[in-house]
Simulated scan of single mutants.
Amino acid sequence: MPPANRDAVGELYSQHHSWVVTLLRSRLGNREQALDLAQDTFVRLLRSELPAPLREPRAYLATIAGRLCLQHFRRQALERAYLESLARLEPAQQPSEETRLMVLEALDAVGQVLDGLGSRVREVFLLSQLDGLTYAQIGEQLGLTVNVVQKAMLKAYRHCYAEVYGA
Rank of each mutant, 00 (worst) to 15 (best):
R25D: 02
A152M: 10
E97I: 10
H159Q: 05
T41M: 12
Q39S: 04
H17P: 09
R27N: 08
A52K: 14
G29T: 13
L133C: 05
N5Q: 15
P2C: 15
H72E: 03
A59P: 11
L12I: 03
T41E: 03
A156H: 03
Q76A: 06
Q71T: 02
A152G: 02
L126V: 11
G139H: 06
A87G: 13
L78A: 05
H72V: 13
G111W: 03
A65M: 05
V113C: 00
G10Y: 09
L68V: 04
L37K: 01
G132W: 02
E140K: 09
A65P: 00
V110C: 08
G118L: 06
R122I: 02
L107Y: 06
L28K: 10
R80F: 08
Y82N: 03
A65D: 01
G118V: 02
Q39L: 00
S14Q: 15
L78P: 00
A162S: 01
A52G: 06
L142C: 03
A59G: 11
R27C: 14
V148F: 02
Q71M: 01
Y135P: 06
V103D: 07
H16F: 12
V121Q: 04
C69A: 10
N147S: 15
Q33S: 04
T22P: 11
R122L: 01
L126S: 08
D131P: 01
R100D: 06
L24F: 00
V146Q: 15
L107P: 00
Y161F: 13
L50T: 12
Y161E: 14
A52V: 14
